[in-house]
Amino acid sequence: MLHIINKSPQERNSLDSCLRVTQSGAVLLIEDAVYAATRGNAAEAKLREAMGSLKVYALGPDLDARGMSDRLIDGVTAVDYAGFVDLVAEHPNCQSWL
């Protein structure tokens, strides 16, 4: 399953909740959730741990818009909107954690 998160981990618990129940698949961070995938963020350790069992992606245009592209954590893959579409198509199902 592809899990789509759109909120900063400091604002909402959606990333926490998702990682709490999810054991496999992929997480795509979009909109304000991209901050979670940047070096020095308090969520970094949690995300690195999750990367042991999950693939983590972040939407490049959202990183660029926020001036955070150069801080992307190693191991997180940046994708564009076309990549977003591919991720949805490649996974059997998806869920937006709103």
């Binding site: 759109n6 909109e31 564009d80 909107y81 076309a82 977003f84 579409v85 198509a89």
Partner: peptide, 19 residues
């Protein structure tokens, strides 16, 4: 909210890929 913008850009990308 950014929701409508994100959805629009997703749709455009999906259509461009022939979906």
């Amino acid at each position: 909210h950014q929701a409508s913008d994100s959805a629009y850009l997703f749709c455009k990308a999906a259509l461009a890929k022939g979906h």
